[in-house]
Computed example of a mutant assay.
Amino acid sequence: MKTRRSFLQKASASALAMSLPAFPMFSLTKESETYFDFQEVKPLRVAIMGLGSYGKRVADAMKDCKRAKLVGLVSGTPSKVESWKKEFGIEDKNCYNYQNFDQIKNNPDIDAVYVITPNGLHKEHAIRTAKAGKHVICEKPMATTAADAAEMVSVCEQAGVKLLIGYRMHFEANTLEVVRKRKAGEFGEIKFFQGLSGFIIGDPTQWRLDPVLSGGGAMMDIGIYSINGARYMIGEEPLWVTAQEVKTDPVKFKEGIDETITFQMGFPNGVVASCLSTYSMNYLDKFFLNGTKGFAEMQPSTGYGPIEGRTHQGPLTNPHVTHQTTQMDEMAAMILDGKQAEIPVDGREGLKDMKIIEAIFEAVKTGQRVDLV
């Protein structure tokens, strides 16, 4: 419906345009472009929970965001809070520890909390965030069990807040180009997918090698990329999994921490995805998709970038943008504007990966094929 206000806004804009000098648009300076901004775009105001190395990576990337802004911190380490406050200009009133965090519900200056704590703490921290009335962005894997993931989804839905999972690759330009080509039929009928994900893990005392905090080893950390990648590259959900584990260092990779797992996933269209997840080999970051009319090969396929690859039509040439910058701007648009991601990043997407991971662990344990319901 046309309103008097909208009419006046358009009339004012037309009058302003007519009154400006007749210079071509390309002659305007960057500063003068703001002259045409009639309405300031609201940013998503984010607090980061967990000020570790990846939290720092996200915070640095957000400096270049257009729609997301870092405004709050949550940490159990006072020294980190102090140094981050100075570096990122965070106000004291937006800083919390794990004891007083629930008071964030009374802070109108924070819209969402990005949970970047160890996997085993995701459920607790996400649920506390949701109950405080704040939107939840949770790093992957979203939990350590499918049951916990399902509870997170339920609580967020009941609280009326968004639950988004940190699938940064779902916004990466070359990845999206391959998915669009597959949807357009440019690869023909998909026949095969291979995903290789791994690196040699370092410090044996880190939380990633603690079964309680990590919920598993390489599969939870790096293997999830091949699981998730197979799903969006093939465009279907797997029906079954088989898996085999190799453990060469039972001291470093104790009970509950997988070192290397090869696994297979069967899809409705007959495609079998052959994948590897490991903590004991480097140079493994590769996706390969094969179809009757063409192929896509990406290496590196999920690293921090640049993502490189080619198809039967030639190289993928989209410019590299810091993944976390794009992710946070896109998630801001999802939360604030209701935008839909081309590849889902919601809690139910994360729950699907958790169910597959549990099935892979079961297949390793039993030596049998495990069907996915």
Rank of each mutant, 00 (worst) to 15 (best):
C138E: 14
H312K: 04
M219A: 09
D337L: 15
Q103T: 11
G229A: 10
K42P: 02
A296F: 06
N97L: 02
Q99K: 09
D203F: 08
G266Q: 07
N94P: 04
V212K: 05
S274V: 12
I104V: 15
G188Y: 09
D37N: 04
E31Q: 11
L351A: 08
G314L: 05
G347E: 06
A112V: 15
D37K: 11
S32I: 05
K355F: 05
T205V: 06
S12E: 13
G52C: 13
A146H: 07
V272C: 06
D371L: 09
V74W: 13
R57D: 11
G303Y: 09
R168W: 08
L276K: 08
E186H: 06
Y279K: 03
V74R: 05
Q264N: 12
F287P: 01
G367R: 10
G216Y: 05
E189Y: 00
T77L: 05
I201E: 06
G309P: 01
W207D: 04
G223M: 07
A296L: 02
H312T: 12
G160T: 13
K123I: 03
S6R: 07
H170S: 14
K183P: 01
C138F: 14
Q206G: 08
G198I: 10
T3Q: 08
D353W: 01
M152N: 07
Q327S: 13
I343L: 13
V373T: 14
H312P: 04
E139P: 09
S301V: 04
D102T: 14
Y96V: 13
K30F: 07
P344I: 09
P306T: 06
E91P: 00
G229F: 11
D37C: 12
V272T: 11
I200M: 00
H320C: 03
